[in-house]
Design a protein around this nucleic acid. Structure first.
Lengths: 358, 358
DNA sequence: CTGTTAGCGCGTTCAA
DNA sequence: TTGAACGCGCTAACAG
């Protein structure tokens, strides 16, 4: 009991496969009676076109692949959400391939995409352009989002991690903090390194010393790193975490240690994942409109696919935007009545909207 | 400048395409010199097999499709993570198709999968078995996770939503709460309805009246629903939310209204998404090991695909497990030093591990 | 051990 | 307006 093919339909409708194809694709002239008979047969046989076969014959899969390092945390899930809705809008399917911790794995994943997809979005913070190019046999449209240096000559979208980090640190300085530590992302990760560099630059410019502990972008690593900072007896009054998840981990560690945030120590994260607005104190962070970025990435890739000219080699840069919440001491608890269980904070409920708009 | 095909390789290595295929797939006998020449040609031409063509000829795509209602919230992203790692382990790719709000859309999505995948995992809380069967031309292995009644005759995994809801409400009763409201998921959603029914049953059994407000599983809807409950002047002391995201929304609404949780009102959620352990107060909830469930779902589907017998028609049931945290008043703030900014809670730090183990 | 050939299911010329 | 035949790139029989 196998699935019906276009042949079965043709046979039952007593027409040729070509006619069936014409009817189904609305291409070419078809007489009304023929058309009717075909549709009847399709209905009777529950026929559904075999997209694999169609792809082979049209060299069009209507699918795009997404190469990711891993799927932990909210960043990537938000991104996928954005990609997915855009894909649907443009009539594309999405095939995801994650857990590529090094360049080799990512490279293998890219190769395995040949014949499955019409284009690729690559987020591999460990892979440079050269490495990537080598993985790319056959001219498959690729959009790079590997957060590295502007990989010249390839269409790409990068986040201004350096600039964002500088802004974050400046914000902490603006609130009067001077002993500011940084929890960095994993070494070798291009995004992590840019943010670290931005932190370093901003601190140097202010004539301040730096304190850096390495994490791996997970909440647990942020927790550990913060615990270490406390144990080291550092008298900190500010923390810039390499991403929100680590910042959240640090927040909890501070809380466990009896440190009040933002009174004792102010915290700023990076990414603005949905959870950032939901923790207490809510997290000041550098906002990347993640899902939105995903949408535009997919849209751009579709452009690359459909206008198969190599014209678009621009490097869009996404500039993160400072979102001030409670953790940096500038937003108040949005309580309306007595907030007996919370320490008073500086200002009124001016940031209520911001806290909610996640 | 097109990508090289197996023919190009054969030509360059002066062998037949069959030999190339044999070398690349390690199937059949190949003489060493032949083998070497083929590999050289592959290298020189940067040849990568076209998996679409391979699929057509082997009727094997090594891809599984996942049909989802949407991608909001952490539940689905956690699930996808579990599915993805398991897929990788088993040598499969994952193609996701989401945003299917009604049965028709889901049905169309399922059809569009023919020829792309070897099997399907369907999460469509709106689609019953009959509807699904109609969408399935050709016998494609399908694993159902639509949370509905045990769809007899089809392999499926269901969460014991009813039992979980009863447990959740019982827990609230155990802590001495009696005026317990429920924020339900969207009408028509099978999971939401089971949880609602469980709530109703547990309340009835305790001889208590019910209060239900409808939400849609989003954090915002939970916030709105809680606000409505407050505005209605209900003197509640307990809340069972249909899922964690709505519970988190409610938590914030209570906070804004000056209600203390758990002192004034205890809250229990459902799912145990990662965020549940990170909000404050941390959220008591019914734990579903989401990623783990995804892993086993994929594993089971692979079993269905590879042993193509219709033997497996069981309905695995996942029993949610109560995780007690701060929001139901039984777990303490895990502060070590002075916790001046927090109201005292009932017990010591006995639940510290549970709060952390997310 | 190796090459030839027939499909896999579909779109698409090109004649009729 | 229709149908026969070829090709997409590859695997798998079957000869040699």
């Amino acid at each position: 009991m196998k699935a019906a093919t276009i042949r079965d339909v043709a046979l039952r409708a007593t027409v040729s496969v070509a006619s069936v194809s014409r009817v189904l694709n609305g291409a070419g002239p078809v007489a009304e009676p023929t058309r009717r008979r075909v549709l009847e047969a399709v209905e009777a046989l529950q026929y559904v076109p075999h997209s694999g076969a169609r792809s082979l014959s049209t060299s069009k899969t209507n699918t795009v692949g997404v190469i990711l390092p891993d799927l932990f945390g909210e960043f990537f899930s938000e991104l996928i959400r954005g990609l997915d809705v855009a894909a649907r809008e443009h009539g594309y399917h999405l095939i995801v391939s994650s857990s590529h911790d090094d360049a080799d794995e990512a490279s293998a994943a890219i190769r395995s995409m040949r014949g499955r997809v019409d284009g690729l979005i690559v987020l591999s913070p460990h892979m440079d352009a050269a490495n990537l190019a080598a993985s790319l046999a056959g001219r498959l449209p690729v959009l790079l989002m590997n957060g590295g240096a502007t990989d010249a000559g390839r269409p790409s979208i990068v986040v201004d991690n350096h600039g964002g980090a500088v802004t974050a640190v400046k914000h902490l300085l603006d609130t009067g903090r001077t002993r500011i530590a940084h929890i960095a992302g994993p070494a070798g990760n291009l995004e992590a390194e840019s943010r670290l560099a931005g932190y370093g630059e901003a601190m140097a410019r202010a004539g301040l010393e730096t304190t850096v502990v390495e994490g791996d972008f997970t909440q647990a690593s942020g927790h550990r790193a913060a615990a270490r900072l406390i144990a080291d007896g550092q008298s900190l009054d500010g923390l810039f975490a390499g991403n929100d998840m680590m910042a959240v981990g640090a927040l909890l560690a501070f809380q466990e240690a009896g440190l009040r945030c933002p009174e004792d120590i102010a915290v700023v994260g990076f990414d603005d994942v949905p959870i950032a607005g939901l923790v207490r104190p809510s997290l000041t962070t550098m906002r990347i409109r993640i899902a939105e970025t995903g949408r535009s990435a997919l849209k751009r890739l579709v452009g690359l696919i459909e206008a198969n000219t190599g014209a678009d080699v621009a490097c869009d840069v996404v500039r993160p935007e400072l979102v001030i919440r409670q953790s940096s001491g500038q937003a108040a608890t949005p309580d309306r009545r007595a907030a007996a269980n919370r320490a008073p904070t500086a200002t009124g409920s001016s940031q209520l909207g911001e806290v909610r708009d996640v």
